[in-house]
Simulated scan of single mutants.
Amino acid sequence: MNCREGCGACCIAPSISTPLPGMPNGKPAGERCLHLSVDYLCGLFGQPERPAVCGDFKADIEVCGSNREEAINLIGWWEQMTAA
C-alpha cells in the first residue's frame, strides 16, 4: 500500500520519542507534528532532520484503514496497544 497523499495521520496519531527540529522532546500521541503542512504533507520529507521512525513507517491497510479518519483511529489504537 502507498501512503495516501494529504493524509498525515502518521504525523498526528502516534507519539515520536526522538527529537525533531522545534520539538526537542519529540511529539506526544494525538498532537499534530510541527512539520505537518496545512495540506497534510511532511515538511521534513527527504531531509536529514526527519526522524528515522518517520522514514521507516510503511503504510498498511491494517494500520491506515481505507481513509484518513480510519488511519487516525487505527494508528491511535496501535499506539495505545504498544505503549510501554
Rank of each mutant, 00 (worst) to 15 (best):
R68C: 10
Q47D: 14
G76K: 03
L41C: 14
S15P: 15
L44G: 11
A13K: 06
P19E: 09
I61G: 10
K27E: 03
K27V: 12
P24F: 08
P51S: 02
Q80V: 12
C42W: 07
I16C: 06
C54L: 12
P28S: 04
E62L: 04
Y40R: 05
T18N: 09
E79W: 00
E31F: 00
F45Y: 06
A29F: 10
C42V: 05
S66D: 11
G22H: 14
C33A: 10
G26R: 05
C11D: 02
I75G: 01
I61H: 11
G8R: 01
S66N: 12
A9N: 11
L74S: 01
V63T: 04
F45V: 08
C7V: 13
S66R: 08
E69I: 00
F45K: 11
A84I: 04
C64G: 05
G6P: 01
I61Q: 10
R32G: 11
I61V: 15
A52Y: 05
E70V: 01
D60M: 15
G30S: 06
S17D: 10
E69S: 06
S37W: 12
R4Q: 04
I16P: 01
I72D: 04
L36K: 08
V63A: 09
V38Y: 14
P51K: 01
M23W: 15
L36Q: 09
L41I: 15
R50V: 07
V63N: 02
I75N: 00
D60G: 09
E5A: 02
S66H: 10
A59L: 12
V38D: 14
P14S: 01
A84K: 02
K27F: 08
G22T: 09
E79F: 03
N25M: 04
G55S: 07
D39M: 13
E49T: 05
G8H: 13
R32I: 13
P51W: 00
L20H: 15
S15D: 09
P48R: 07
G76N: 04
A29S: 08
S15K: 08
P21K: 14
I12S: 04
G30E: 10
P14I: 01
D56S: 14
G6C: 03
A71Y: 14
A71S: 13
E5M: 03
C3Q: 05
F57S: 15
E31S: 02
C42R: 04
L36H: 10
T18E: 04
K58F: 13
P51L: 05
E69P: 00
V63I: 07
W77D: 11
L20F: 11
G8F: 11
Y40A: 04
A52C: 09
Q47H: 07
A13L: 05
